[in-house]
Design a protein around this nucleic acid. Sequence first.
DNA 1: ATGATTTCCTGTAGGC
DNA 2: TGCCTACAGGAAATCA
Length: 277
Amino acid sequence: MPELPEVETVVRGLQPHVEGRLVTHARRSKLLRALPSRGKVARGLAQRRLDRLWRRGKYLLGDLDDGRTLLVHLGMSGQLVLEPLETGPRRHMHLALRFEGLEAELRFYDPRRFGRVALGGIDELAEWTGLGSLGLEPLEHDAGEIATAIRSRSKRLKALLLEGTAVAGAGNIYADESLFRAGLHPLRVASSLTRREAVCLAGELQGVLREAISGGGSTIGDYVRHDGRRGGFQEEHLVYGRAGRPCPRCGRKIRRLEVAGRGTHICTRCQRAPRKS
DNA sequence: ATGATTTCCTGTAGGC
DNA sequence: TGCCTACAGGAAATCA
């Protein structure tokens, strides 16, 4: 699933091709979950220049020359790819943008339709989506600050990381991977962490996110880079999707449990359960 | 308000 | 081989 490293990989891949270019045509499918919903997204994009492409958490953002911003969330199965104009679109294309002087089209595919698109001022986007309640950007703050934000919350670690309101960008993969690396159980309550544990978790989260970006992200399901290539970091996962296989640290069988409604992968020896629940 | 649960979706995996 | 069902999960909506 696309999480911070996957979105960052797509942003970096697209930047040199589309930044500074004028959008000549835009069209969207009626199935796309878009805001505003009255079909104004495509019209609002046409004849606007895309000044800057950036990322916040898992949201991909494109600043237009009229002060508005295009927001794209890839959801579960979203792909944002540049494809040659002569290549016909595949199934499940929900948004297509053409740029002046570019022989390729930026296409948003999303079979499961969990993705979202919005066009508005940054304040409107913050109001319409989770963008406004995102926590710290993990690679733009030091581990100490992130640790403080984590320790100020009373949720279970897994739920807190998935919510993204203390620290943004982790989804199921990187939540499990960072918790394993830090040796912390996903059911631990964030506010119960020692300072040392919280700093460790913050540091491991930053580490795994940076490594995943270097690896071009993790391709588990549908995620691909802007050019259709798969990511490579799935090969480096230590626990995610590895239930039944040996823990790379101690050899015990990795277990899969459910936390916060999500499949959660842990080593019960390396990640000690809290006293209660 | 806060936290927990449900909902939206369809491709894929597994069972028979 | 092919049909069928269960399952996966990010974030918004809904519930308690």
